[in-house]
Amino acid sequence: MTRRFRLMLSGACALLATTLCLAYGQHVRDEAERVRAEALERYGGEVVSLLVAPDGLEAGEVVDRRNVIERDWLADLAPEGAIVGMESVEGEEVTIPAAPGAPLTSLNFRDSEDAVEVPAGHVALAVPVTDDLGLPPSAAEGTELVAYRVSDTGVSLIAPEVQVLRAPSDQGGIGSRGSVTLAVEPTNVPSVLASGADGSLRLALPAPDVAGEDAGATAPVDVPAEGSSDEAAGAGSEGEGDAS
């Protein structure tokens, strides 16, 4: 085997190795893009990684990697001012309590003079404003609302008393349509958070005579799914036929 042949063989092997490396790199990029596309299709939109306090945070607590984790969130449903990087808030002191499972936002780190006053026995939540939320245009600070969850099986009441602490504001960022800050009773926080995260949350303005607990008594707690009323009517007609 001549020296020239060995050099040609070495060059061919090097070229083949480079080609294989490039092909493998492209395969990895294509696979990552495929996984991302599947995730976007599954979630129905762009996904971002937000900071979430699994057990909640009280005023005065310091943010660190023991009490905050990163969790995927649908970008269109992310609260306004949502925190997307641990570096920006690690070591910072919380001024407004964060509910368990709620994304941290700039609201949780407001200066005391800018902080909203949360009623006793309630938790402040920032909910992104979307076209489907149903927030009345007249909703201002102090407005009492009722929260419902809309699903394929109907509508259910999840919070009969929700108070507006801060009216919607649009300052860009992740929650580009702005958000509304609500005071919610602790027992209703998980339902409101879950409904807000999947886009099924709806807010309604009750009349004065059905405000508070009365809203739960008069609200449609279980509305039948579309088509069930027709089935009920059909069943009634069959019953009348049997009776005749």
Rank of each mutant, 00 (worst) to 15 (best):
residue 35 V to L: 14
residue 53 A to W: 00
residue 100 P to M: 12
residue 54 P to G: 13
residue 166 R to F: 07
residue 195 S to H: 08
residue 21 C to W: 15
residue 48 V to R: 03
residue 211 A to D: 06
residue 217 A to M: 15
residue 62 V to N: 02
residue 170 D to Y: 06
residue 211 A to R: 03
residue 176 S to H: 11
residue 155 V to E: 03
residue 191 S to V: 01
residue 92 E to N: 10
residue 127 V to M: 03
residue 18 T to K: 03
residue 44 G to P: 06
residue 229 S to A: 15
residue 20 L to E: 11
residue 99 A to W: 05
residue 91 G to Q: 12
residue 107 L to K: 00
residue 122 H to F: 12
residue 35 V to W: 13
residue 123 V to S: 04
residue 243 A to S: 10
residue 53 A to M: 06
residue 159 A to M: 00
residue 44 G to E: 06
residue 109 F to H: 00
residue 143 T to Y: 04
residue 202 R to A: 11
residue 190 P to Q: 09
residue 96 I to G: 01
residue 196 G to V: 03
residue 220 P to W: 07
residue 27 H to Q: 11
residue 16 L to F: 15
residue 55 D to T: 07
residue 167 A to C: 09
residue 126 A to E: 11
residue 214 D to Y: 07
residue 110 R to I: 09
residue 175 G to N: 12
residue 18 T to N: 08
residue 65 R to H: 11
residue 24 Y to N: 00
residue 70 E to A: 15
residue 113 E to F: 15
residue 221 V to K: 13
residue 102 A to R: 03
residue 110 R to H: 12
residue 235 A to I: 13
residue 103 P to N: 14
residue 26 Q to M: 10
residue 189 V to C: 07
residue 70 E to D: 13
residue 138 S to E: 11
residue 54 P to V: 09
residue 95 T to Q: 09
residue 40 L to D: 11
residue 244 S to Y: 15
residue 50 L to E: 00
residue 182 L to F: 10
residue 152 D to P: 01
residue 25 G to L: 09
residue 81 G to C: 02
residue 33 E to S: 14
residue 18 T to P: 04
residue 212 G to R: 03
residue 244 S to C: 11
residue 148 Y to I: 03
residue 173 G to P: 02
residue 88 S to I: 13
residue 73 W to K: 03
residue 140 A to R: 14
residue 63 V to R: 00
residue 174 I to G: 02
residue 130 T to I: 05
residue 216 G to T: 06
residue 23 A to R: 15
residue 154 G to P: 05
residue 153 T to L: 07
residue 127 V to K: 02
residue 152 D to Y: 09
residue 139 A to S: 09
residue 206 P to K: 04
residue 228 S to Y: 13
residue 68 V to N: 01
residue 121 G to H: 13
residue 19 T to R: 07
residue 170 D to C: 07
residue 212 G to C: 04
residue 33 E to G: 05
residue 73 W to H: 13
residue 180 V to M: 10
residue 96 I to P: 00
residue 124 A to P: 03
residue 74 L to V: 15
residue 7 L to G: 02
residue 41 E to D: 12
residue 9 L to W: 12
